[in-house]
Design a protein around this nucleic acid. Structure first.
Lengths: 248, 248
DNA sequence: CGTATTTTTGAAGCGATTCAATGGACGTGG
DNA sequence: CCACGTCCATTGAATCGCTTCAAAAATACG
């Protein structure tokens, strides 16, 4: 399905199309293909030939990598405006990850040929893509450092904070992760097991830092998480305002 | 020091300047600055304002990241022709790692302004940079996956194989890592401790897979490493041709 | 209301780290 | 050329953080 005028605003807001003038945006749009995905559907699969570059318009995507042994790890969350599979610009490459829709998602995409052509005509696009990739590179370096040098509890704290930044919604009670996140998901994001995640969250819940349910996490006291993530001395005890039970 | 004509060949071979015509190469050269570094000197330091993009012409660089606690991890090895610090294209960024010379190194560099200007005039440069970054991104994803899912022995095997690919020199005895690599270095590359690396290498040496000395590693039987890295069933026993001792 | 999925919790075990002490290689200067 | 100091590597023993496995509880959903 070719993109329509309604997508122009979306395209204009995408990171890799920043600072383009209207004519440029129009030609970008002319080559765009829009597609809709339902919860759980895959936009592309790891190891398939990489032929298109995608920009998420609405919804969210999860990037997954499967190990040869069948274990799964979470390579990141994609939010609207972000581009993925920039690798497709190279010839004869394969997607290094799979991209799966969380909830329903609207995705625009361009073929290698077309995007290449657009970039030659408008170098700003390539520069924007470079920026986005660089940023993500730094994020990966950070994750790598964390994995090699930090204990699990700290990594989980960081993982939660990252999630909060990308998909947090402020409520009166605190910051709610506005996505279904299972213990398993968190484990895949932080390089541990769902058991350890469960234990850690329970501990935090006792301390009043968070409030967790089935696939649902509410951060009541973000600063508490920060002190864990940064390994600072324990702060003031969190404001103890638990919903119901008060005798502990 | 401004680059001279002698650097033109180097520039033409750099990955990010591939497929440029001679006029373009000349203008790239016009903006280049060349600098020489001695063993151990730093090209730039982590957290310094990122103002230049570098291309390694000769020698090798080590990319290091320092944790807040002072631990160090090795973010990769840079070989001639590779570009680093592409992040400098963004404004107001800081280098996420430090770059240190191994042996003596010749480095060319461009200011943000100049390279930006060159890229606008010649989009191919930006596309090349995108390619290079994408490749490195995949490498990082792999390392991340390895770190979260694989045991130490396997990671060390992979680390050694990577080193062999980047800096291996074939000899009659096997593949020699053509760089001083300490146990500590390997530990920083693979996310473990120098003790565990030492133990692992000793074990491999007993099995005849490698032959290790002080900051020196010779891979006698690369296939043995591959089977460890890929977790294949143990292969034929390695060709047992130890230099001296034969009674074991 | 039954079934499926997610989560919790306990107990056992192990891989890897930590620490300490020793050994060996290298370079330097007497 | 030997003696020395420095740096790197090895090895053992103790410990621990985390995983693994099993079982039960809690929650969602048709």
């Amino acid at each position: 399905m070719t993109a329509h005028a309604e997508h122009l605003a979306v395209i204009a807001q995408a990171d890799i199309f920043h600072n383009l003038d209207t004519p440029a945006l129009r030609s970008v749009m002319a080559y765009a293909v829009a597609a809709h995905y339902q919860e759980g559907e895959f936009v592309f699969y790891q190891d398939d030939p990489a032929e298109r570059v995608y920009v998420l318009a609405e919804g969210r995507l999860r990037l997954l990598q499967l190990t040869p042994e069948g274990a799964q790890i979470n390579m990141g969350l994609v939010s609207p405006g972000q581009a993925i599979a920039v690798i497709s610009l190279l010839e004869a490459q394969r997607y290094p990850v799979s991209a799966q829709a969380i909830g329903s998602a609207l995705v625009l995409s361009w073929s290698r040929r077309d995007l290449h052509h657009l970039m030659i005509g408008c170098p700003q696009i390539a520069l924007n893509a470079l920026q986005e990739l660089s940023q993500r590179m730094i994020e990966f370096q950070d994750r790598l450092r964390e994995l090699t040098t930090e204990r699990v509890e700290r990594r989980i704290a960081r993982g939660l904070l990252r999630l909060a930044r990308q998909a947090g919604r402020k409520t009166e009670q605190g910051v709610l992760i506005d996505l279904p996140v299972s213990r398993q998901d968190l484990a895949e994001m932080t390089g541990t097991t769902l058991f350890t995640v469960s234990r850690t969250l329970s501990q935090w819940e006792e301390r009043g830092i968070i409030s967790a349910g089935r696939e649902r996490i509410l951060i009541r006291f973000p600063h508490g998480l920060v002190t864990i993530a940064e390994d600072l001395p324990a702060p003031h005890p969190p404001p103890s305002e638990k919903p119901s039970d008060s005798q502990v």
